[in-house]
Structures are given as C-alpha cells and as structure tokens.
Design a protein around this nucleic acid. Structure first.
Length: 397
DNA sequence: ATGTGC
C-alpha cells in the first residue's frame, strides 16, 4: 500500500492492494485523474481496481461536492445475499435452470404492491423490476463451501447445508435516466446541500431503493422457482454516493464506485462465475483510512472487447463456459456475453480477499461455491427483435 | 451499465 503525497492539488490516494495484486496501468492513471477532480479530498482504492468508463471501478472518493459521473449510470447496483429454506443437495438444478427462464419475462405478480410495500412511488421503469439486466449482472444459487468464522456465521444464522442466492443487479433504466438528466443539465459537480444537489440525491436514493427491491424480487422469483422460502442475509449497494458530516461540520459526499460499505453488516464479495464467492466481516481498525469501504468483487482483468479475441465462442467453448469448475451450470443465452464474462476475464478473488485480510480490513466468515448461475438468457439480437415487435404492436394500437 | 441503433 502506498499513500501518495499531495501534489499538483491532487487528493491523497490510499491503495489497499499488495504488490501481488495486479492493477492495470490505466486504472492507476484514472485513479490519479479522479483524485484531481474538483473538491476531492481523499481517495481509497481496493485490490479489485480496474479501468471504468468515467474513472476506475473499485474505489471510494470523498469530496466536498457530488460528482454524478463517479456514481455512474447504474445507481444502487449491488449485491443481495439470501438464504433459501432448503438444503443445497435437495435442489434439482437442471429443473431449476429451466424454471429460472421466467427471469427474462416481466413479473406477472403485483409489482405495484411490492413498490408500495417498499414505500416507493411509480417510475417509468417499473416494468424492468425483477429483471437481472446485462453485463456482469447475475443471479447465482450457491452452496456453503467452508465456514471459517463459526461464531460470526452462527450469529448471522448461516446454515452450512442450506442453499443461498447471490443477486448482482441494479436500477436498470432508472439510474441510467437519472445520470442522463444530470449530465444534460450540465450537472457534473453539485454542492451537497444545493437545490440541484438535493434533487440529485433524492432521485439517487430512490434508485438505490429501487435497485435493492429489484434484487429482492429477483431472489423471490428464484425462491418460487425452487418452491421454497427465503431470508435476507444482507444487501449492499456498491455504486452510490452518500452525504456525511465533514471534519469541520460541512457536508461531504462519499462516492462508492464499485466498493461495498464496511459499516453495515457482513459483505458478500463475489468471485467470477467460475470461482468461490466470499462472505466477509468488515473490521474497524482501518475503516476510516479505507473510507468505510471494501472491495466489491474480483474486478476485471481484461476488458470486454478483448475477451472476444481471447475466448472463441464456438460450440465447444460455449459448452465449456456453460459449466463451472465445481460442476455447476451457467445459463447465458448470449454467446457474446458468455465470452465477455468468462471467468478468465476476472482477477483472482482469493488474492483480492487476501489483500483485504492482510490490510486488516476484513476477515473471512464463509466461502460459497456456485451451483447455478443465471445471466441474461436472451441474446442481444433476440432482445432487439422482441423489443421491435413490442413497439410494432404499440404503434398499431 | 443502458425499455442498448443506423
């Protein structure tokens, strides 16, 4: 770890990655750029740091103003971990894989009721509630691999025999539209208590709650497919900004750009879809230095575009990518996405976790192995075709 | 990441 001296008006950067964790040069370059943005006072980087569209993913930025671009378009994106009320060995995974295709259809249940129960008003994007989305988003059925902190695991009610669901999804078109509106109005930096700042935060917080509900509904649909009940272990957003009191009483903005909060319970840290995932307990000692945050996953090693060259998406490769090394199933109808999201596109999650442990940021509670990973099942072409036919029907009315 | 485009 190094703390850069404050030079060129750049905020100090603290990197919680050992020399064993490979970090791409462009990610470091982006990190330095972000540290030089207006009003930035401190930056913390996690071992899963990798280049992003606007600044690197896997970092935390404390500033005296809100930078909507740092939060990005998927406001409220995060991880929900749920326990299913069924033993993992009792699941019929092939059957469940078939049934989970309902996740590609809109909810047929009463989404209005779910929104009302969550205290949320209607949005123009509610038809997408309960859908996973694309990119690195997934819904994964897991089994406990090892419990490494039995006391903490027992406190959380973890049962080594039960199946678990880890949902990675966000606010779909809703968060996207909020960023779009902010940028259209030229709002690249907002004072936290200005009218514009308040309006952004209000829309942002709505999207954070919407995304959390989205993960809940995805998990509930999965539980229905498995004919069982579920219980929430924890749900944490890793793309978000929150206001907090600064040292001199002024209001600051803490941006988590692909980083999980370390002050609100156990943190699920997913690996790639071909590795173990972790549940970790944040430790307090270095919390302030790490800006109250932890790594949010393995982090990409190769960008999406380059994966198309690295992984040939022939039939034999598809067959390989549709299984994981644990004998589990990966459902992803989109060949291109399958290549982009191949496990080899990601850094080693064990190394990322080892760094968190070595820096005293967390300890491992349990590991989970993937049994069934569900990603967007329809290809791009199929989705476009389906949208086209929908709008054609609307045009005809 | 995106009710993801000419």
């Amino acid at each position: 770890m190094g703390t850069s001296p404050k030079a060129d008006g750049r905020a100090p950067i603290r990197v919680f990655a050992s020399s064993k964790s490979w970090i791409e040069g462009n990610a470091t370059f982006q990190l330095e750029h972000v540290a030089g943005l207006p009003g930035v006072q401190a930056v913390a980087a996690m071992p899963d740091l990798h280049p992003g569209k606007f600044g690197p993913v896997g970092c935390v930025i404390l500033a005296d103003r809100i930078h909507p671009q740092l939060v990005g378009s998927d406001i409220g994106c995060g991880m929900g971990l749920f326990e299913l009320d069924i033993a993992a060995r009792k699941l019929r995974l092939d059957q469940l894989a078939d049934r989970l295709h309902v996740l590609d259809q809109p909810c047929d249940g009463d989404v209005t009721r779910a929104l009302a129960d969550a205290g949320l008003g209607a949005t123009a994007f509610d038809a997408a509630l309960g859908s996973i989305g694309g990119g690195n988003h997934f819904c994964e059925i897991q089994a406990v691999d090892k419990i490494l902190a039995p006391d903490t695991a027992a406190q959380a009610g973890l049962d080594r025999d039960h199946a678990y669901i880890l949902v990675h999804s966000g606010s779909r078109g809703f968060g996207f539209s909020i960023l779009e509106t902010a940028l259209r109005n030229g709002q690249t930096a907002l004072h936290p208590t200005s009218d514009e700042g308040n309006a952004y935060m209000s829309a942002h917080d709505h999207a954070v709650q919407w995304a959390k509900l989205n993960r809940r509904i995805i998990a509930e649909r999965t539980a229905v497919a498995a004919r069982t009940d579920l219980r929430l272990l924890n749900d944490l957003a890793h793309n978000m900004v929150e206001r907090q009191a600064g040292a001199t009483g002024d209001v600051m903005a803490l941006h988590r750009k692909g980083a999980a909060a370390s002050d609100r319970g156990l943190v699920p840290v997913p690996g790639s879809r071909g590795t173990l995932s972790y549940l970790v307990e944040p430790l307090c000692e270095m919390r302030a230095e790490a800006l109250a945050s932890l790594a949010h996953g393995a982090g990409r090693k190769y960008d999406r575009a380059s994966m198309h060259g690295r992984v040939r998406v022939k039939r034999s490769d598809v067959a390989r990518l549709e299984r994981n090394p644990y004998g589990g199933i990966v459902v992803c109808g989109d060949r291109g996405l399958l290549a982009e999201e191949a496990p080899e596109a990601y850094k080693n999650i064990d190394r990322v976790i080892a760094d968190l442990v070595e820096f005293g940021l967390a300890r491992v509670v349990a590991t989970f192995r993937p049994l069934l990973t569900f990603k967007r099942a329809q290809s791009d072409a199929a989705l476009r075709e389906s949208n086209r036919s929908k709008s054609w029907k609307e045009d005809r009315r």
